[in-house]
Design a protein around this nucleic acid. Sequence first.
DNA 1: ATGTAATAGTTGTTTTTGTAACTAACAAGC
DNA 2: GCTTGTTAGTTACAAAAACAACTATTACAT
Lengths: 145, 145
Amino acid sequence: MTGSADFDVQQFLPYLLNQAAEASSLEFQKVYKDKYGMLRNEWRVLFHLGIYGEMTASEIGSRAQMHKTKISRAVQRLAERRYLTRSRAVQDRRIEHLKLTTAGEKVYRDLKAIAADYDAALTEGMSAKDAATLRDLLARLALRS
Amino acid sequence: MTGSADFDVQQFLPYLLNQAAEASSLEFQKVYKDKYGMLRNEWRVLFHLGIYGEMTASEIGSRAQMHKTKISRAVQRLAERRYLTRSRAVQDRRIEHLKLTTAGEKVYRDLKAIAADYDAALTEGMSAKDAATLRDLLARLALRS
DNA sequence: ATGTAATAGTTGTTTTTGTAACTAACAAGC
DNA sequence: GCTTGTTAGTTACAAAAACAACTATTACAT
């Protein structure tokens, strides 16, 4: 018999994580997509530059665990929109230093505020302790790769 | 000044969820992809049929929160591989009843066992209580959409 | 019974990703 | 100096996902 309910997909962690990630991304996605025409990898790069200041592509890559092609394309589009500037390093001309423009910083600050509000809304129903546990466990799962 | 560290992407729930989801999917993906040449949407459909028995495409859609085009294509490929059979309902000829074949069930059982083991490995470092909290919170976040 | 809307599922087209191969610059060993 | 290897980043091509438009069938209202 097939219908043996001895396994529940809905409780399978990778499945559950994907569902939660997808559902909780939608609302924020609407903002960066509809308001700024940005893609997921683009806001990620933007945020990294907004938070850490000037960085190179590969620094962003190792921090965000993003592949270099994703970053390359995200940087390209952000540069086209004049949200960041790229400048070759003189000591090592393979490297490009990336930095948000004033316009880029403005967008970052706007998105950051929206993200903070949204994060608060997401954790609203949870106790502070549970929310902390959640973040901790997720961070540990994210490191596994 | 840009580098104000008053916001941490790494703690932003949608970001964290995506990282954790991606990292924890990789290992299982290798199995259904490399061993069975399946795509994410395909194992999801397979699992739903494995667990709940005969279903229609839209029943799977509402349970798994998958769009009908994803299901349509997943079903197509699963049918090509003879993992499931499709039969038109006589009372309503728009509907197709989907059912795993013996081969499909075999694959399901194999993947199910691997998934169960993998889930155990993922939660290994966590207390039972924390793991339960995690699943509960994730399920609630997944419902938000 | 017949026009209108709703549902089930498919197909076509466009975006977006993923993978691999590539160029350019530097670093080391001999 | 010159071969070999490594790192930074880009580009080209193939795979996959997203979105919209479509067909077929049923339901429902007049």
